[in-house]
Amino acid sequence: MSLSGDTVMSALLDETDFAEGFRSLFEQSGIGIANLDTRMRLREANADFLREVDREPQDAYGRSFPALLHRSVRQRVEHGLTELIAGRRERFVERVLAVRPDGTLVPAGMTAVAVPAVASPDGPGEIDTVLVLLHAKPRGGEPPAAAPARVALQPMDARILEGVAAGIPTVKLASSLFMSRGGVEYRVTALLRMLRVPNRPALVSKAHSIGMFDTAVWPPRVHPEYVKN
């Protein structure tokens, strides 16, 4: 039976012996669990975690955990894990996009907690382990979305997509790009066809879901990997 991420994390951290608690829930929670070292590398992961990232143990162990994520969330995750390891926060929760070897993107909820090596009378010892829970649950029960490897926007189309995502009115967007209103509408229509969506809100949602935007900045910016040189 699958447990919630909070339930699993609480059960693990309530154990007097962390190693015993980790092992007892490792194969039973129905949620991806990974054990990272202080350099954010995978020491061990359960079958649920490996299934979500579609990797064998020999391919995953020793690999940087942020490297398994889409670049749009990688910087935030690295920062959050660094804060945990330094002892500046107790828990880090984030929505992430895991990237499988074939480019498929897997939306997931991530919870990470730093675990001290040995407690002392003066308080917790140095951080030795970061426990990561990865709970992938696609909306509406839909399968993970394939990454649009063939999507490569013209620079002008990327600027228009950014403007639409920022909520800039068409007339103002056209003026800022030295285009006519009709020119902007034409390119927006082409973007709708390219991403196979019916309207502008769906266009922005689809672009976000497949990781086209850098979610760490505002106004939205399309990642260079999605823009033709």
Rank of each mutant, 00 (worst) to 15 (best):
V99P: 00
P143H: 15
S72P: 00
R193W: 01
R91G: 07
G211F: 11
E94I: 03
A202L: 04
M1R: 10
G167A: 04
V130F: 00
R39M: 08
L36Q: 06
S24E: 07
F213L: 04
G21C: 11
V151W: 13
L195G: 03
L153N: 03
R76D: 05
L161Q: 02
L195C: 06
L42H: 03
V73R: 13
R193N: 09
S4C: 11
V227P: 00
F18Q: 13
A147N: 05
R139I: 05
S4K: 10
R181H: 13
H70Y: 11
A165S: 03
D14C: 10
S209V: 04
L105W: 10
V188A: 04
G125C: 06
D37Q: 03
E52A: 11
L153K: 02
G141C: 07
V227E: 05
A207F: 01
E56R: 12
G109Y: 02
A174P: 00
L50I: 10
E94T: 04
T82F: 01
G123P: 13
G141S: 06
E225F: 10
K228N: 09
A60P: 00
L161G: 02
V93T: 14
R23T: 13
I210N: 01
A165E: 05
A207H: 03
P138Q: 15
M9Y: 00
D102R: 05
A45N: 08
A136Q: 07
Q75R: 14
A216M: 02
R187S: 10
E44Y: 03
S205E: 15
L50A: 10
A202H: 02
E27F: 03
V106E: 08
Y61V: 14
R63Y: 07
Q75K: 13
H79E: 12
Q75I: 07
P219H: 01
L3T: 12
K228C: 04
S24T: 12
I210C: 09
A136D: 03
F178Q: 07
P121C: 09
A202R: 11
S175L: 12
G182I: 12
G123Q: 05
P66L: 09
A166T: 07
S64T: 04
T7C: 06
L12V: 15
P138V: 14
P116Q: 13
L195W: 03
G30P: 14
V151F: 09
D6E: 12
G62I: 11
E20M: 04
T7Y: 07
V171Y: 13
S120W: 02
R74F: 08
G30I: 04
R95H: 13
M9P: 05
G21E: 10
L12F: 01
